[in-house]
Write a protein that binds this DNA or RNA. Structure first.
Length: 445
RNA sequence: GACCCUAUCGUCUAGCGGUUAGGACACUGCCCUUUCACGGCGGUAACAGGGGUUCAAUUCCCCUUAGGGUCGCCA
């Protein structure tokens, strides 16, 4: 039988970074085995469910590149979906749950109590086989020893998570449940439910959780818990995926940057580590930088354009070749795409404003005299490329008996309005002679 | 309170009885250098503690400690 896994998030309005990793591991396992990756929306809690909240999940998964074989295509519960095992919204499956509850009641395995329906949980130690953790013997807790039965239908008629989760996994033919370790203790309930339906439970794989840097549980409110903040701050999705897969899984050969295709080949459940991992932003940033500087330049431009746009810098009026050249000079200086506007916006401005203190420090009369001479030299260049510009500046410095830095610093300020940025010579080449001379004139006024 | 999981540098990890305990991030020294970076060559840094088993434990077992999770008419 072919493998079927699922990611079953609840639409809370955002996609948790830990949920994203759970989705990733499910996806990886499905792709590794050529199985199906099912997306199911657990929207039983009507109060906080909106189509928008579902869209957040869908767009998060799409952003990461985790495509699903079955599941909704939009946030609309009644909308289009992929696959023949739907509906994929629990809010659309009430009839299934009702029928299953009747089945349990008919078998004497569920009963009514205080307006609810409770499941008759076996009063015994349960063995939970787990592909990651191994066999777990789950004894009854003190409270369960008193009464192990649990509610499966609320007094308002709504079915509870444990019930719907099991019914859906059963009816959707899920073979492997890969989920966070926070569900491990609950699994005894789920196994009992499967058996009550006369079905064999799926294989379980409980993966460790992602903790905050200080080792506490990462909850919704914690900094960095939402996947989308990484997109907004300019992380490349391929880098986020790479980082996430390294939390609890390792290629065991010391590599940190791994092609996804290769990971799909290697990935398997038993090698997943059993202990929780702390989220390390510095490592993510490093990985992100590695991707940023090695990805195809067109991909880089795509990410860069949308980042600048979000910062109010519009590039539609500029030649694509110019934009590409401009971004190229920033590539190995910018670690986070969010910093790209700071490094590149001067390429897309007509007038450069000099900081007030720079006027006094770098454009005092003596320096202005030198810069006028440099301006003349630059104006005389036939080929205005980085090598020629560098040669011109250095020879002018020699001629004036000063260090190159004396000319370099003010020239950078005149061209970019900033003290940091791409390599000066290269940035001047990209700007072109005309813009450079114009900016020097402007600064020397 | 009960139950469950876990434990190698600060962090992510390699290790599956005998290793100078390896790599990466971070930190840091030097070099390179037009800013900022990159890069190159180094450095600091770990087997939580205590018992066993064994000729030999980071590795296997037990206990303690610590961290995390679960015991809902949340999911």
């Amino acid at each position: 039988m072919s493998v079927r896994v699922r990611f079953a998030p609840s639409p809370t309005g955002f996609l948790h970074i830990g949920g994203a990793r759970t989705a990733l591991f499910n996806w990886l396992y499905a792709r590794h085995l050529g199985g199906a990756f099912v997306l199911r929306i657990e929207d039983t809690d009507a109060a906080r469910n909106t189509p928008e909240a579902v869209e957040v999940i869908l767009s998060g998964l799409r952003w990461l590149g985790l495509d699903w074989d079955e599941g909704p295509q939009t946030g609309n519960p009644a909308g289009p979906s992929l696959g023949r095992n739907g509906p994929y919204f629990q809010s659309q499956r009430s009839a299934n749950y009702r029928q299953r509850v009747e089945e349990l009641k008919a078998k004497g395995l569920a009963y009514e109590s205080d307006g609810t329906v409770k499941f008759r949980m076996p009063r015994e130690t349960m063995l939970i086989p787990d592909l990651v953790v191994g066999d777990v013997k789950r004894e009854l807790t003190d409270r369960e020893a008193v009464d192990p039965d649990f509610v499966i239908v609320r007094s308002d008629g709504q079915p509870v998570f444990h019930l719907v989760n099991v019914v859906d996994d059963l009816e959707m033919g899920i073979t492997h449940v890969i989920r966070g370790e926070d569900h491990l203790a609950n699994t005894a309930k789920h196994i009992a439910l499967f058996r009550a339906f006369g079905a064999e439970p799926p294989k379980y794989a409980h993966i460790p959780l992602i903790l905050n840097p200080d080792g506490t549980k990462m909850s919704k409110r914690d900094q960095g818990a939402s996947l989308m903040t990484y997109r907004d701050e300019g992380y490349a999705p391929e880098a986020v995926v790479n980082y996430l897969m390294l939390l609890g899984w390792s290629p065991k050969d010391d590599r940190q940057i791994l092609p996804l295709a290769e990971v799909i080949q290697m990935f398997d459940l038993p090698q997943i580590l059993r202990h929780n991992a702390r989220f390390d932003l510095a490592k993510l940033q490093w990985i992100n930088y590695e991707y940023l500087r090695t990805m195809p330049i067109d991909r880089y431009c795509e990410l860069g354009r949308s980042m600048l746009q979000r910062h109010g810098v519009f590039l539609s009026g500029y030649d694509p070749g110019y934009v590409r050249a401009a971004f190229s000079t920033c590539r190995d200086k910018v670690k986070l795409l969010a910093d790209l506007p700071l490094f590149s916006d001067f390429y897309f401005q007509t007038d450069i404003a000099l900081p007030a203190e720079a006027r006094e420090k770098d454009f005092h009369p003596e320096n202005k005299e030198r810069l006028v001479k440099l301006r003349t030299a630059l104006a005389g260049l036939v080929v205005f490329d980085a090598a020629q510009v560098e040669a011109a500046i250095k020879s002018m410095a020699t001629q004036l008996g000063v260090k190159a830095g004396v000319l370099v610093h003010p020239t950078r300020l005149a061209c970019t309005g900033k003290t940091v940025g791409p390599s000066l010579y290269h940035l001047m080449e990209v700007l072109g002679k005309e813009r450079v001379l114009h900016r020097l004139d402007w600064a020397l006024k």
